[in-house]
Computed example of a mutant assay.
Amino acid sequence: MNSDVQADLKDLDTTLSSIEAVADVPRLRQEIEELSEQAGRPDLWDDVEAAQQITSRLAYAQGDLRRLDDLRRRLDDVPVLYELAEDEGDQSAIADADAERAKLRTEISSLEVRTLLSGEYDEREALVTIRSEAGGIDAADFAEMLLRMYLRWAERHGYGTDVYETSYAEEAGIKSATFAVHAPYAFGTLSVEAGTHRLVRISPFDNQGRRQTSFAGVEVAPVVETSDHIEIDEKDLRVDVFRASGPGGQGVNTTDSAVRLTHIPSGIVVACQNERSQLQNKASAMAVLQAKLLERRRQEERELRDSFKEAGSSWGNQMRNYVLHPYQLVKDLRTEHEEGNPSQVLDGQIDEFIEAGIRWRKQTESDS
């Protein structure tokens, strides 16, 4: 191997060793052993919610360990690949070794981002709300495009999702939608997506074919856990029940099972219509409301510590442009990261934007 290859492999080894240290591989193995023991108990499913938490955590811990072990094995094999290729003078084998090394750099760099998620709630699952803003029908259509983008992103990663509520616009698209992403670190990962997204395109709803600019807002909150102590007084709630509707106002069931909760002190309104029973919808809506109140409390605490002020000033402002006309470009205004294929981005290929956002946030926090 030449010196450049050796230096690159040494750098990759240093980075992977750092990731393994942060992940605490011995502790991870012990956690898997303990969770496997709990998952094997005959009374596991007596408490369905606890059982789901145990089996979910076990699956993700096993996935994390499997990924780390696989990267370590492959990285250890690369020098052997080079030696065999050079001994045989096989240029195609050397090219294969180069390709594997490049692939490892991409995968290790992506995993390194996880080590930057060290906030108080970063390891939580996420609740995401998307709302159409300025731009009329195009904004509602854009909000639905973003909803599909995030659901596709989750699907690509094998993350479970639950859409709690979708408020459809009259002509096309959605007014708002709230969904959960069930994966460890989903909040820390997706929280950099919060803010105002801007779309520029030829409007499909304008019969004169004019260019239209529209906006949609993204909010991200951590899922509430029992230890958070988010108490809500029933006297502070207004509860409305209604019949769930689909696109164009079409009824999707025949009973008033959908539930809307208004938290009077904060003005926060949430709704849930995906469950069959009113009781289940109220429980889901309450979980969403608690998450939003937790996120509000989290931001207030950060402001009190003066650590949220500088980084937070960007969240409510425009943070990413999606330009479909007169050229094709998606650009993040905070990180300057850009992609020239909006179709792929809107189909859920947003990992590079997310990773750049996490690195940007970490750097911003270090500088403040």
Rank of each mutant, 00 (worst) to 15 (best):
Q6T: 15
T14R: 12
R27W: 08
R29L: 08
R29N: 10
R29T: 06
Q30P: 09
G40N: 12
D46H: 08
R57M: 01
A59S: 15
Y60V: 14
D64Y: 04
L65Y: 12
L68E: 02
L71P: 00
R72F: 01
D77A: 13
E83G: 12
Q91S: 10
D98R: 05
T106G: 05
E107D: 11
A126W: 03
E133S: 12
A139P: 01
E144H: 02
Y150S: 04
L151E: 13
G158D: 12
Y159C: 12
Y164W: 11
Y164L: 10
Y168F: 15
T178F: 00
L190S: 00
Q208S: 10
G217N: 09
V220S: 06
V224I: 13
E225I: 13
E225Y: 07
D228K: 04
G248R: 06
Q250I: 04
V259S: 01
V270D: 01
C272R: 00
Q273T: 15
N274K: 07
N274G: 01
N281M: 03
K282L: 12
A287R: 09
A291Q: 02
E295F: 12
R297Y: 01
E301D: 14
S307R: 13
S307F: 11
M319I: 11
N321Y: 03
H325M: 08
H325E: 10
Q328M: 11
V330N: 03
E339S: 05
D351Y: 01
D351M: 00
I354M: 07
A356S: 14
T364N: 03
